[in-house]
Amino acid sequence: MNNFTYTQADGVDNAVQEIAGHSEARFIAGGTNLIDLMKEHVMQPEHLIDINSIHLNSIEFLEDGRLHLGALVTNADTAWHPAVEKHYPLLSDAILAGASPQLRNMATNGGNLMQRTRCYYFYDTTTPCNKREPGAGCSAMNGYNRIHAILGTSPHCIAVHPSDMCVALRALDATIQVKGLHGERLIPIADFHRLPGDTPQLDNNLAHDELITGIILPREHFTQHYKYLKVRDRASYAFALVSVAVVATMEEGIITNIRMAMGGVAHKPWRDENAEQWLKGKPATQENFAYAADMILQDAKTFGTNDFKPALAKRAIVRACREATNIG
């Protein structure tokens, strides 16, 4: 870990002003990913702004019935919050599928959005990595890429976003509320994370001076038809090889609405609205889900040790859809 200075912000404005004045500063909340990366010398901020004293730690319904999750509420408190458990069970399940109880007690909602990839090469500073050092090259491309992306990759980076929570947020069409020097803006979750393209060093579209203040969940609750399926190398406490978040509404066996988001396959939680559109109005059957999965995966590209992923992803999509729509 490098040497750095440390201050505590006591309000959003104060935090934003402070970070705007320091290009090498970072916010710290739970710290579960940032401190890990600092110990590996992957991230070396000169200044940390502790935002834990800012009051962004409540979960409340907005007047229009949407639910606002404070950025600093811990993952555990979010997953076990009665309003989340009751109205957004998919989100509870996704959060509880991630990390460990201890980490969920530390990690915050804002921090979860800011999680960085678990790519082995990103973490190992002795190997080239375009995300860590643009232009250095991608070691994963010809290396061990079991956990790497199959969709939306670029010649510069095949890393995946590791979050479970964000996959659920994508399926739920959440909105990220951020505040910067120039005021507040709302970023749809679809536009929050980025694909690597030729700027793999950028994980998301948050500006340096912006602070995530909350997550807004739409009114649609999907309490009847939902599934978060996580496939991993052990039963718990492991990152997803593939994960699928499905929410749906049904009428007499016909899908009236469906959203499917995937983790472990791309640089951002992945959704294919064409496939969702195709399923609407169709009966919930194994065949239809398989067809939709093929649509989602038609452009999948693999890199050697992740050759198994398209097949696994297809099966996971079909399984999650089946379970969400109760067709067994």
Partner: peptide, 26 residues
């Protein structure tokens, strides 16, 4: 020392956390 094993678990204000991934100053 990276939040991957739980050996450093302590209770902070009654809640279990990995003490390796937080700063004392925090």
């Amino acid at each position: 020392d990276h939040g991957q094993c739980g050996a450093c678990t302590v209770l902070v204000n009654g809640k279990r956390i990995n003490s390796c991934l937080t700063l004392a100053v925090m």
